[in-house]
Design a binder for these strands. Structure first.
Lengths: 231, 231
DNA sequence: ACCTGAACACCGTTCAAGT
DNA sequence: ACCTGAACACCGTTCAAGT
Protein backbone atom coordinates (compact mmCIF):
# COMPACT_ATOMS: atom_id res chain seq x y z
CA UNK A 1 0.00 0.00 0.00
CA UNK A 2 2.78 2.40 0.92
CA UNK A 3 4.52 1.51 -2.33
CA UNK A 4 1.45 2.55 -4.35
CA UNK A 5 2.64 5.06 -6.99
CA UNK A 6 1.22 8.57 -6.99
CA UNK A 7 -1.12 9.07 -9.92
CA UNK A 8 0.41 11.44 -12.45
CA UNK A 9 -1.73 14.57 -12.91
CA UNK A 10 -2.96 13.88 -16.42
CA UNK A 11 -5.93 15.97 -17.42
CA UNK A 12 -8.09 13.01 -18.51
CA UNK A 13 -7.41 10.80 -15.54
CA UNK A 14 -9.04 12.27 -12.47
CA UNK A 15 -12.81 11.96 -12.70
CA UNK A 16 -12.93 9.98 -9.44
CA UNK A 17 -15.99 7.98 -10.33
CA UNK A 18 -17.13 4.91 -8.46
CA UNK A 19 -20.12 2.64 -8.51
CA UNK A 20 -21.45 4.45 -5.45
CA UNK A 21 -21.06 7.94 -6.90
CA UNK A 22 -22.72 6.85 -10.14
CA UNK A 23 -25.61 5.21 -8.30
CA UNK A 24 -26.09 8.21 -6.04
CA UNK A 25 -26.15 10.65 -8.93
CA UNK A 26 -28.57 8.42 -10.86
CA UNK A 27 -30.99 8.25 -7.93
CA UNK A 28 -30.80 12.03 -7.50
CA UNK A 29 -31.42 12.60 -11.20
CA UNK A 30 -34.43 10.27 -11.24
CA UNK A 31 -35.80 11.86 -8.07
CA UNK A 32 -35.72 15.26 -9.78
CA UNK A 33 -36.96 14.43 -13.23
CA UNK A 34 -38.45 10.96 -13.23
CA UNK A 35 -36.98 7.85 -14.73
CA UNK A 36 -37.64 8.98 -18.31
CA UNK A 37 -35.24 11.86 -17.67
CA UNK A 38 -32.48 9.44 -16.77
CA UNK A 39 -30.18 8.76 -19.69
CA UNK A 40 -26.58 7.63 -19.64
CA UNK A 41 -25.59 10.83 -21.39
CA UNK A 42 -27.36 13.15 -18.95
CA UNK A 43 -26.07 11.19 -15.98
CA UNK A 44 -22.53 11.48 -17.32
CA UNK A 45 -22.90 15.23 -17.84
CA UNK A 46 -24.08 15.58 -14.25
CA UNK A 47 -20.92 13.81 -13.14
CA UNK A 48 -18.72 15.96 -15.39
CA UNK A 49 -17.75 13.08 -17.62
CA UNK A 50 -18.56 11.49 -20.98
CA UNK A 51 -21.27 8.82 -21.19
CA UNK A 52 -18.84 6.06 -22.02
CA UNK A 53 -16.94 6.50 -18.76
CA UNK A 54 -19.91 5.17 -16.86
CA UNK A 55 -19.39 1.75 -18.38
CA UNK A 56 -16.23 1.39 -16.33
CA UNK A 57 -18.41 1.25 -13.22
CA UNK A 58 -21.67 -0.34 -14.27
CA UNK A 59 -22.21 -2.91 -16.97
CA UNK A 60 -25.33 -1.43 -18.59
CA UNK A 61 -28.29 0.81 -17.99
CA UNK A 62 -30.27 -2.19 -16.82
CA UNK A 63 -27.72 -2.99 -14.14
CA UNK A 64 -27.76 0.67 -13.19
CA UNK A 65 -31.50 0.41 -12.55
CA UNK A 66 -30.91 -2.75 -10.50
CA UNK A 67 -28.48 -0.84 -8.34
CA UNK A 68 -30.80 2.14 -7.96
CA UNK A 69 -33.65 -0.10 -6.87
CA UNK A 70 -31.43 -1.65 -4.22
CA UNK A 71 -30.56 1.81 -2.95
CA UNK A 72 -34.28 2.33 -2.33
CA UNK A 73 -34.55 -1.04 -0.59
CA UNK A 74 -31.67 -0.04 1.66
CA UNK A 75 -33.71 2.92 2.90
CA UNK A 76 -36.55 0.73 4.17
CA UNK A 77 -36.33 -0.08 7.85
CA UNK A 78 -36.45 -3.84 8.37
CA UNK A 79 -38.63 -5.33 11.12
CA UNK A 80 -37.06 -6.92 14.16
CA UNK A 81 -38.04 -10.50 14.92
CA UNK A 82 -38.61 -10.27 18.66
CA UNK A 83 -41.43 -7.83 19.10
CA UNK A 84 -45.14 -7.83 18.24
CA UNK A 85 -45.30 -8.87 14.58
CA UNK A 86 -48.27 -6.65 13.78
CA UNK A 87 -46.53 -3.56 15.04
CA UNK A 88 -43.33 -4.49 13.22
CA UNK A 89 -45.14 -5.12 9.95
CA UNK A 90 -47.02 -1.85 10.31
CA UNK A 91 -43.78 0.10 10.78
CA UNK A 92 -42.17 -1.64 7.86
CA UNK A 93 -45.16 -0.89 5.62
CA UNK A 94 -45.06 2.79 6.55
CA UNK A 95 -41.31 2.89 5.98
CA UNK A 96 -41.78 1.29 2.56
CA UNK A 97 -44.44 3.76 1.54
CA UNK A 98 -42.30 6.72 2.49
CA UNK A 99 -39.26 5.38 0.64
CA UNK A 100 -41.44 4.93 -2.43
CA UNK A 101 -42.75 8.46 -2.06
CA UNK A 102 -39.23 9.85 -1.89
CA UNK A 103 -38.34 7.90 -5.03
CA UNK A 104 -41.49 7.81 -7.13
CA UNK A 105 -39.65 6.51 -10.18
CA UNK A 106 -38.99 3.28 -8.25
CA UNK A 107 -42.56 2.10 -7.74
CA UNK A 108 -42.95 0.06 -10.91
CA UNK A 109 -39.37 -1.21 -10.70
CA UNK A 110 -39.04 -2.59 -7.18
CA UNK A 111 -40.92 -5.78 -7.92
CA UNK A 112 -39.90 -6.01 -11.53
CA UNK A 113 -36.21 -6.90 -11.30
CA UNK A 114 -35.07 -10.48 -11.50
CA UNK A 115 -32.16 -11.36 -9.22
CA UNK A 116 -32.61 -9.08 -6.22
CA UNK A 117 -29.88 -6.96 -4.64
CA UNK A 118 -28.39 -7.33 -1.21
CA UNK A 119 -30.57 -4.79 0.56
CA UNK A 120 -33.62 -6.44 -0.96
CA UNK A 121 -32.57 -9.86 0.31
CA UNK A 122 -31.75 -8.52 3.75
CA UNK A 123 -35.20 -6.93 4.04
CA UNK A 124 -36.90 -10.03 2.66
CA UNK A 125 -35.08 -12.18 5.22
CA UNK A 126 -36.01 -9.86 8.08
CA UNK A 127 -39.70 -9.89 7.16
CA UNK A 128 -39.79 -13.67 6.98
CA UNK A 129 -37.86 -13.98 10.24
CA UNK A 130 -40.36 -11.71 11.97
CA UNK A 131 -43.37 -13.64 10.71
CA UNK A 132 -41.86 -17.01 11.52
CA UNK A 133 -40.82 -15.84 15.00
CA UNK A 134 -44.45 -14.92 15.57
CA UNK A 135 -45.31 -18.57 15.07
CA UNK A 136 -46.70 -18.50 11.53
CA UNK A 137 -46.40 -21.59 9.37
CA UNK A 138 -44.62 -21.32 6.04
CA UNK A 139 -47.93 -21.18 4.24
CA UNK A 140 -49.25 -18.53 6.57
CA UNK A 141 -46.06 -16.50 6.25
CA UNK A 142 -46.23 -16.59 2.47
CA UNK A 143 -49.88 -15.56 2.52
CA UNK A 144 -49.26 -12.74 4.97
CA UNK A 145 -46.27 -11.45 3.06
CA UNK A 146 -48.04 -11.59 -0.28
CA UNK A 147 -51.16 -9.63 0.74
CA UNK A 148 -49.17 -6.97 2.51
CA UNK A 149 -46.75 -6.37 -0.32
CA UNK A 150 -49.43 -6.39 -2.98
CA UNK A 151 -51.29 -3.76 -0.98
CA UNK A 152 -48.25 -1.61 -0.18
CA UNK A 153 -46.88 -1.51 -3.72
CA UNK A 154 -50.31 -1.18 -5.28
CA UNK A 155 -51.14 1.72 -3.02
CA UNK A 156 -47.88 3.42 -3.91
CA UNK A 157 -48.72 2.93 -7.57
CA UNK A 158 -52.06 4.70 -7.18
CA UNK A 159 -50.51 7.40 -5.07
CA UNK A 160 -47.94 8.15 -7.73
CA UNK A 161 -50.71 8.60 -10.30
CA UNK A 162 -52.85 10.80 -8.07
CA UNK A 163 -50.12 13.32 -7.64
CA UNK A 164 -51.97 15.62 -5.24
CA UNK A 165 -50.26 15.99 -1.89
CA UNK A 166 -52.40 17.86 0.62
CA UNK A 167 -56.06 17.63 1.42
CA UNK A 168 -56.50 21.22 0.22
CA UNK A 169 -55.15 20.35 -3.19
CA UNK A 170 -57.76 17.61 -3.36
CA UNK A 171 -60.56 20.03 -2.60
CA UNK A 172 -59.30 22.36 -5.29
CA UNK A 173 -58.90 19.59 -7.87
CA UNK A 174 -62.37 18.24 -7.17
CA UNK A 175 -63.88 21.73 -7.51
CA UNK A 176 -62.08 22.25 -10.80
CA UNK A 177 -63.30 18.90 -12.11
CA UNK A 178 -66.87 19.72 -11.15
CA UNK A 179 -66.63 23.12 -12.86
CA UNK A 180 -64.80 22.15 -16.05
CA UNK A 181 -66.09 18.66 -16.76
CA UNK A 182 -69.69 19.31 -15.81
CA UNK A 183 -71.14 17.98 -19.06
CA UNK A 184 -68.99 14.85 -19.02
CA UNK A 185 -69.93 14.11 -15.42
CA UNK A 186 -73.62 13.96 -16.30
CA UNK A 187 -72.99 10.53 -17.76
CA UNK A 188 -71.29 9.36 -14.56
CA UNK A 189 -73.46 10.42 -11.63
CA UNK A 190 -71.66 8.37 -8.99
CA UNK A 191 -68.28 9.74 -9.98
CA UNK A 192 -69.78 13.22 -9.76
CA UNK A 193 -71.08 12.46 -6.27
CA UNK A 194 -67.64 11.37 -5.15
CA UNK A 195 -66.13 14.57 -6.55
CA UNK A 196 -68.67 16.54 -4.51
CA UNK A 197 -67.71 14.56 -1.44
CA UNK A 198 -64.01 15.22 -2.04
CA UNK A 199 -64.61 18.91 -2.62
CA UNK A 200 -66.39 19.06 0.73
CA UNK A 201 -64.17 16.81 2.84
CA UNK A 202 -60.76 16.62 1.17
CA UNK A 203 -58.68 13.48 1.10
CA UNK A 204 -55.60 12.21 2.88
CA UNK A 205 -53.36 9.59 1.29
CA UNK A 206 -51.91 8.76 4.66
CA UNK A 207 -55.26 8.15 6.31
CA UNK A 208 -56.39 6.08 3.36
CA UNK A 209 -53.19 4.02 3.47
CA UNK A 210 -53.55 3.27 7.15
CA UNK A 211 -57.21 2.28 6.79
CA UNK A 212 -56.33 -0.46 4.32
CA UNK A 213 -53.16 -1.48 6.11
CA UNK A 214 -54.87 -1.97 9.45
CA UNK A 215 -57.79 -3.71 7.80
CA UNK A 216 -55.37 -6.23 6.34
CA UNK A 217 -53.21 -6.65 9.44
CA UNK A 218 -56.23 -7.14 11.71
CA UNK A 219 -57.76 -9.66 9.34
CA UNK A 220 -54.45 -11.52 9.11
CA UNK A 221 -54.22 -11.68 12.87
CA UNK A 222 -57.65 -13.28 13.08
CA UNK A 223 -56.97 -15.85 10.38
CA UNK A 224 -53.50 -16.68 11.54
CA UNK A 225 -54.78 -18.04 14.82
CA UNK A 226 -55.52 -21.05 12.60
CA UNK A 227 -52.22 -20.80 10.73
CA UNK A 228 -50.37 -21.06 14.00
CA UNK A 229 -51.95 -24.36 14.86
CA UNK A 230 -50.60 -25.94 11.70
CA UNK A 231 -53.78 -25.73 9.61
CA UNK B 1 -73.44 9.36 -48.59
CA UNK B 2 -74.45 8.16 -52.04
CA UNK B 3 -72.75 11.19 -53.58
CA UNK B 4 -69.45 10.29 -51.93
CA UNK B 5 -66.76 10.20 -54.65
CA UNK B 6 -64.85 7.01 -55.30
CA UNK B 7 -61.28 7.27 -54.11
CA UNK B 8 -58.86 7.26 -57.05
CA UNK B 9 -56.54 4.23 -56.89
CA UNK B 10 -53.28 6.04 -56.19
CA UNK B 11 -50.53 3.81 -54.94
CA UNK B 12 -49.78 5.85 -51.81
CA UNK B 13 -53.33 6.42 -50.76
CA UNK B 14 -54.84 3.19 -49.60
CA UNK B 15 -53.33 2.10 -46.31
CA UNK B 16 -56.77 2.05 -44.67
CA UNK B 17 -55.55 2.96 -41.23
CA UNK B 18 -57.81 4.08 -38.43
CA UNK B 19 -57.45 4.82 -34.76
CA UNK B 20 -58.92 1.41 -34.00
CA UNK B 21 -56.59 -0.50 -36.31
CA UNK B 22 -53.56 1.35 -34.92
CA UNK B 23 -54.64 0.70 -31.33
CA UNK B 24 -55.32 -2.95 -32.01
CA UNK B 25 -51.95 -3.50 -33.65
CA UNK B 26 -50.19 -1.66 -30.83
CA UNK B 27 -51.84 -3.83 -28.17
CA UNK B 28 -50.92 -6.96 -30.12
CA UNK B 29 -47.34 -5.82 -30.51
CA UNK B 30 -46.98 -5.04 -26.80
CA UNK B 31 -48.61 -8.35 -25.88
CA UNK B 32 -45.98 -10.19 -27.90
CA UNK B 33 -42.84 -8.28 -27.03
CA UNK B 34 -43.53 -6.06 -24.05
CA UNK B 35 -43.90 -2.32 -24.03
CA UNK B 36 -40.19 -1.71 -24.63
CA UNK B 37 -40.62 -3.43 -27.98
CA UNK B 38 -43.31 -0.97 -29.01
CA UNK B 39 -41.91 1.82 -31.15
CA UNK B 40 -43.72 3.98 -33.64
CA UNK B 41 -41.46 2.65 -36.36
CA UNK B 42 -42.05 -1.01 -35.57
CA UNK B 43 -45.76 -0.45 -35.19
CA UNK B 44 -45.85 1.24 -38.59
CA UNK B 45 -43.94 -1.60 -40.20
CA UNK B 46 -46.42 -4.08 -38.75
CA UNK B 47 -49.20 -2.08 -40.40
CA UNK B 48 -47.35 -1.89 -43.70
CA UNK B 49 -46.83 1.83 -43.53
CA UNK B 50 -44.23 4.44 -42.62
CA UNK B 51 -43.99 5.69 -39.03
CA UNK B 52 -45.17 9.17 -39.90
CA UNK B 53 -48.52 7.92 -41.17
CA UNK B 54 -49.49 6.96 -37.64
CA UNK B 55 -49.62 10.61 -36.67
CA UNK B 56 -52.69 11.04 -38.82
CA UNK B 57 -54.57 8.85 -36.37
CA UNK B 58 -53.01 9.45 -32.98
CA UNK B 59 -51.39 12.62 -31.72
CA UNK B 60 -48.32 11.11 -30.07
CA UNK B 61 -46.93 7.97 -28.53
CA UNK B 62 -48.23 9.07 -25.18
CA UNK B 63 -51.78 9.32 -26.48
CA UNK B 64 -51.28 5.93 -28.09
CA UNK B 65 -50.50 4.47 -24.67
CA UNK B 66 -53.60 6.19 -23.26
CA UNK B 67 -55.68 4.50 -25.91
CA UNK B 68 -54.07 1.11 -25.34
CA UNK B 69 -54.73 1.32 -21.62
CA UNK B 70 -58.37 2.04 -22.29
CA UNK B 71 -58.54 -1.02 -24.53
CA UNK B 72 -57.49 -3.07 -21.51
CA UNK B 73 -60.09 -1.34 -19.32
CA UNK B 74 -62.73 -2.21 -21.88
CA UNK B 75 -61.96 -5.89 -21.37
CA UNK B 76 -62.75 -5.81 -17.66
CA UNK B 77 -66.26 -6.89 -16.83
CA UNK B 78 -68.02 -4.20 -14.79
CA UNK B 79 -70.06 -5.17 -11.71
CA UNK B 80 -73.83 -4.84 -11.76
CA UNK B 81 -75.38 -2.70 -9.03
CA UNK B 82 -78.27 -4.92 -7.98
CA UNK B 83 -76.71 -8.10 -6.72
CA UNK B 84 -74.59 -9.01 -3.71
CA UNK B 85 -71.76 -6.45 -3.69
CA UNK B 86 -69.16 -8.87 -2.38
CA UNK B 87 -69.80 -11.33 -5.16
CA UNK B 88 -69.78 -8.55 -7.76
CA UNK B 89 -66.52 -7.09 -6.47
CA UNK B 90 -64.97 -10.53 -6.41
CA UNK B 91 -65.89 -11.16 -10.03
CA UNK B 92 -64.63 -7.76 -11.07
CA UNK B 93 -61.31 -8.32 -9.27
CA UNK B 94 -60.83 -11.66 -11.00
CA UNK B 95 -61.73 -10.12 -14.34
CA UNK B 96 -59.20 -7.33 -13.75
CA UNK B 97 -56.44 -9.75 -12.86
CA UNK B 98 -57.02 -11.80 -15.97
CA UNK B 99 -57.06 -8.74 -18.24
CA UNK B 100 -53.76 -7.65 -16.69
CA UNK B 101 -52.33 -11.10 -17.24
CA UNK B 102 -53.34 -11.04 -20.89
CA UNK B 103 -51.67 -7.62 -21.22
CA UNK B 104 -48.72 -7.65 -18.87
CA UNK B 105 -47.27 -4.44 -20.30
CA UNK B 106 -50.32 -2.59 -18.96
CA UNK B 107 -49.82 -3.20 -15.24
CA UNK B 108 -47.70 -0.15 -14.46
CA UNK B 109 -49.68 2.04 -16.84
CA UNK B 110 -53.32 1.52 -15.85
CA UNK B 111 -53.12 3.74 -12.81
CA UNK B 112 -50.48 6.06 -14.17
CA UNK B 113 -52.41 7.97 -16.85
CA UNK B 114 -53.94 11.33 -16.11
CA UNK B 115 -57.31 11.94 -17.78
CA UNK B 116 -58.88 8.50 -17.97
CA UNK B 117 -60.49 7.02 -21.07
CA UNK B 118 -64.14 6.16 -21.58
CA UNK B 119 -63.91 2.49 -20.67
CA UNK B 120 -62.04 3.46 -17.51
CA UNK B 121 -64.76 5.93 -16.51
CA UNK B 122 -67.51 3.46 -17.29
CA UNK B 123 -65.90 0.83 -15.07
CA UNK B 124 -65.19 3.35 -12.34
CA UNK B 125 -68.83 4.44 -12.39
CA UNK B 126 -70.10 0.86 -12.24
CA UNK B 127 -67.93 0.02 -9.23
CA UNK B 128 -69.09 3.09 -7.33
CA UNK B 129 -72.71 2.41 -8.27
CA UNK B 130 -72.43 -1.13 -6.95
CA UNK B 131 -70.89 -0.06 -3.65
CA UNK B 132 -73.37 2.76 -3.14
CA UNK B 133 -76.31 0.51 -4.01
CA UNK B 134 -75.11 -1.83 -1.26
CA UNK B 135 -75.64 1.01 1.17
CA UNK B 136 -72.09 2.19 1.73
CA UNK B 137 -71.46 5.82 2.63
CA UNK B 138 -69.18 7.90 0.38
CA UNK B 139 -66.35 7.47 2.83
CA UNK B 140 -66.88 3.74 3.06
CA UNK B 141 -67.10 3.43 -0.72
CA UNK B 142 -63.84 5.31 -1.19
CA UNK B 143 -62.13 3.15 1.43
CA UNK B 144 -63.45 -0.06 -0.05
CA UNK B 145 -62.49 0.93 -3.58
CA UNK B 146 -59.03 2.05 -2.56
CA UNK B 147 -58.02 -1.13 -0.69
CA UNK B 148 -59.32 -3.40 -3.39
CA UNK B 149 -57.60 -1.60 -6.25
CA UNK B 150 -54.33 -1.26 -4.40
CA UNK B 151 -54.40 -4.98 -3.76
CA UNK B 152 -55.45 -5.99 -7.27
CA UNK B 153 -52.91 -3.85 -9.10
CA UNK B 154 -50.17 -4.57 -6.59
CA UNK B 155 -50.74 -8.28 -6.93
CA UNK B 156 -50.61 -8.03 -10.71
CA UNK B 157 -47.34 -6.14 -10.37
CA UNK B 158 -45.79 -8.94 -8.31
CA UNK B 159 -47.20 -11.55 -10.61
CA UNK B 160 -45.63 -9.92 -13.62
CA UNK B 161 -42.24 -10.00 -11.93
CA UNK B 162 -42.53 -13.61 -10.79
CA UNK B 163 -43.03 -14.85 -14.29
CA UNK B 164 -43.57 -18.51 -13.45
CA UNK B 165 -46.94 -19.84 -14.50
CA UNK B 166 -47.60 -23.30 -13.16
CA UNK B 167 -46.99 -24.84 -9.78
CA UNK B 168 -44.52 -27.27 -11.39
CA UNK B 169 -42.43 -24.39 -12.70
CA UNK B 170 -42.27 -23.08 -9.16
CA UNK B 171 -41.00 -26.36 -7.83
CA UNK B 172 -38.35 -26.47 -10.52
CA UNK B 173 -37.28 -22.87 -9.93
CA UNK B 174 -37.05 -23.36 -6.19
CA UNK B 175 -34.95 -26.50 -6.68
CA UNK B 176 -32.63 -24.67 -9.04
CA UNK B 177 -32.23 -21.79 -6.58
CA UNK B 178 -31.41 -24.20 -3.77
CA UNK B 179 -28.84 -25.96 -5.93
CA UNK B 180 -27.16 -22.97 -7.58
CA UNK B 181 -27.31 -20.32 -4.87
CA UNK B 182 -26.51 -22.59 -1.96
CA UNK B 183 -23.67 -20.44 -0.64
CA UNK B 184 -25.64 -17.21 -0.93
CA UNK B 185 -28.62 -18.74 0.86
CA UNK B 186 -26.52 -19.53 3.93
CA UNK B 187 -26.75 -15.86 4.83
CA UNK B 188 -30.54 -15.89 4.52
CA UNK B 189 -31.84 -18.95 6.34
CA UNK B 190 -35.51 -17.98 6.28
CA UNK B 191 -35.45 -17.36 2.56
CA UNK B 192 -33.83 -20.77 2.16
CA UNK B 193 -36.59 -22.35 4.26
CA UNK B 194 -39.24 -20.80 2.05
CA UNK B 195 -37.48 -22.10 -1.05
CA UNK B 196 -37.56 -25.58 0.49
CA UNK B 197 -41.24 -25.17 1.17
CA UNK B 198 -41.88 -24.07 -2.42
CA UNK B 199 -39.82 -26.94 -3.80
CA UNK B 200 -41.97 -29.34 -1.78
CA UNK B 201 -45.42 -27.81 -2.20
CA UNK B 202 -45.33 -25.59 -5.31
CA UNK B 203 -47.19 -22.33 -5.55
CA UNK B 204 -50.34 -21.11 -7.24
CA UNK B 205 -50.77 -17.44 -8.14
CA UNK B 206 -54.50 -17.92 -8.41
CA UNK B 207 -54.85 -19.46 -4.96
CA UNK B 208 -52.65 -16.76 -3.50
CA UNK B 209 -54.67 -14.04 -5.19
CA UNK B 210 -57.96 -15.38 -3.88
CA UNK B 211 -56.63 -15.73 -0.34
CA UNK B 212 -55.84 -12.01 -0.16
CA UNK B 213 -58.92 -10.94 -2.07
CA UNK B 214 -61.30 -12.83 0.20
CA UNK B 215 -59.42 -11.67 3.27
CA UNK B 216 -59.99 -8.09 2.20
CA UNK B 217 -63.60 -8.51 1.08
CA UNK B 218 -64.57 -10.32 4.30
CA UNK B 219 -62.86 -7.69 6.43
CA UNK B 220 -64.58 -4.92 4.49
CA UNK B 221 -67.94 -6.56 5.01
CA UNK B 222 -67.40 -6.62 8.76
CA UNK B 223 -66.29 -3.00 8.97
CA UNK B 224 -68.88 -1.68 6.61
CA UNK B 225 -71.67 -2.67 8.93
CA UNK B 226 -70.60 0.55 10.67
CA UNK B 227 -70.16 2.46 7.38
CA UNK B 228 -73.75 1.72 6.52
CA UNK B 229 -75.06 3.39 9.63
CA UNK B 230 -73.50 6.71 8.58
CA UNK B 231 -70.41 6.59 10.78
C1' DA C 1 -57.44 13.71 -46.30
C1' DC C 2 -53.93 10.69 -45.88
C1' DC C 3 -49.21 9.12 -46.80
C1' DT C 4 -44.04 9.91 -47.20
C1' DG C 5 -38.70 11.26 -47.26
C1' DA C 6 -35.52 13.87 -45.21
C1' DA C 7 -34.09 15.84 -41.21
C1' DC C 8 -33.45 16.97 -36.12
C1' DA C 9 -32.36 16.00 -31.63
C1' DC C 10 -32.05 12.47 -29.08
C1' DC C 11 -31.02 7.24 -27.23
C1' DG C 12 -27.66 2.77 -25.39
C1' DT C 13 -23.60 0.61 -26.49
C1' DT C 14 -19.11 -1.02 -28.98
C1' DC C 15 -14.58 -0.41 -30.16
C1' DA C 16 -10.18 1.34 -30.95
C1' DA C 17 -7.43 4.74 -29.15
C1' DG C 18 -5.44 7.59 -25.74
C1' DT C 19 -2.91 8.36 -20.95
C1' DA D 1 -7.04 1.26 -14.85
C1' DC D 2 -9.84 4.69 -16.32
C1' DC D 3 -11.42 8.05 -19.73
C1' DT D 4 -12.76 9.48 -24.62
C1' DG D 5 -14.24 10.31 -29.88
C1' DA D 6 -16.27 8.36 -33.51
C1' DA D 7 -19.51 5.32 -34.99
C1' DC D 8 -23.68 2.15 -35.22
C1' DA D 9 -28.29 1.14 -34.92
C1' DC D 10 -31.85 2.79 -32.99
C1' DC D 11 -35.67 6.40 -30.97
C1' DG D 12 -40.11 10.25 -31.31
C1' DT D 13 -41.48 13.96 -33.90
C1' DT D 14 -41.63 18.08 -37.38
C1' DC D 15 -42.14 19.81 -41.74
C1' DA D 16 -42.51 20.39 -46.52
C1' DA D 17 -43.89 17.79 -50.23
C1' DG D 18 -46.52 14.58 -52.73
C1' DT D 19 -51.29 12.54 -54.42
Amino acid sequence: MATHRERPPHALQRAGLSRERVLGAAVALADEGGVEELSMRKLAKKLGVEAMSLYNHIASKDRLLDGMVDVVFSEIEPPSPGADWKQEMRKRAISTRSALNRHRWAVGLMEARPDPGEANLRLHEAVLACLRAAGLSYEAAIHAYSVQDAYIYGFALQERALALETSEEWVEAAERTLRDQQAALDAYPHIADIQHHLAAHGFSHEEEFLFGLDLILDALEERLADGRRGR
